[in-house]
Design a protein around this nucleic acid. Sequence first.
DNA 1: CAAATAAATCGACAAATGTCGTTTAAGCAT
DNA 2: ATGCTTAAACGACATTTGTCGATTTATTTG
Lengths: 199, 199
Amino acid sequence: MLKGAMAETVQLGSITETTDPRILRSRQMLMESLFRLLTRKEFDDISIQEIADEATLNRATFYLHYPDKNALLQAMTATRFRDLIARRGLSFTDCDGALRAIALGVCDYLAETTGCPGQLAKMPLEGSIIAAVEDIFLQGAAHHAIVPGTDPKLLATTAAWAIFGAARRWYQTPDRIPAEEMAAKIEAMVKPIFLTASM
Amino acid sequence: MLKGAMAETVQLGSITETTDPRILRSRQMLMESLFRLLTRKEFDDISIQEIADEATLNRATFYLHYPDKNALLQAMTATRFRDLIARRGLSFTDCDGALRAIALGVCDYLAETTGCPGQLAKMPLEGSIIAAVEDIFLQGAAHHAIVPGTDPKLLATTAAWAIFGAARRWYQTPDRIPAEEMAAKIEAMVKPIFLTASM
DNA sequence: CAAATAAATCGACAAATGTCGTTTAAGCAT
DNA sequence: ATGCTTAAACGACATTTGTCGATTTATTTG
């Protein structure tokens, strides 16, 4: 898979900020197209041609922005999840109960976006959601006194994976408890990770 | 993607045990083929035809057992990781330091199996390794006094994701600390999850 | 405004994917 | 040993994928 120039910018890793309205517009339309199609069909049954058609873009244009379907799903998920968090004004700067609020955000996102719980297994959302949660933690870490021997990145990663894993299990459970209740449980489990001393 | 009969048994979820030597043989050969090919090429660059050829099986036979390449990778990873753990005789029944040993197992598995750290990002190993770790925890839970309000499954899932996430970060880090050292860190972070009271 | 830059379109291509119906042969039960 | 069951092989098919080169069109810069 030779990855091509891909419109100058890269999706994962360090992003060369783009202002070009054409690029922004194309990517946005692709993400919205996929989202719309997902309400009707399963991810696996959606072809890149369909996504391009729905976005009124040429198929080749798709490949100019994303290497494959998964990358688009990834990008879409990251964007939508970040928006959800942003709408709720979570930044971990207002540190109180932020952990619970983030957990709740993940639960809600899974519940409102993913159609069928069984389908979740196939979708590679992990990367995007986990990365977003990780980022929030890291932002928060900047506002805290840094415990000497501790690696904030490792803590953020570990906590993010723990939260996502727990939320995922919750969502896949047949008869779920309320999201709020689950968020409280997650908070209780994950909080101690951050209190890890002597590392 | 109509999933077809798939040789009577299913990969994920409840597995209808098979004794038929033909089935066992085919699956084993496919897993070994993929492993061998992975030492030479990247996962993305391996076609199903190649896997089938390497296994001296027909391509159609592949689809009799796995819906796609990812499912095979998943199965292969689960099998190999379980073997690694089994070779080390880890069962969490010998509870002391088992958590650290499992963390070490995950680190070692990633390091010895995955070729390039950057490639890891694309591979959906999560499901398989995490599921295996989860199982080990659940086995262990059976040997412990069950704390009333606690859900062992949730704890197992959360801890498993935390461990995998941490190990994954470690493996992707350019200049890694020794695996043993990392395992100790992971143990320190994850242990408190199991001590969560009042859930 | 005009020229340079770069994104989007178009058509085409070889390759890979996923699925079928049919045939061959291995495993299993009586 | 005989026959039933079912896995594996085979060949074929329509579709999707990923990539190209060439062209058109939109944006930015000077």
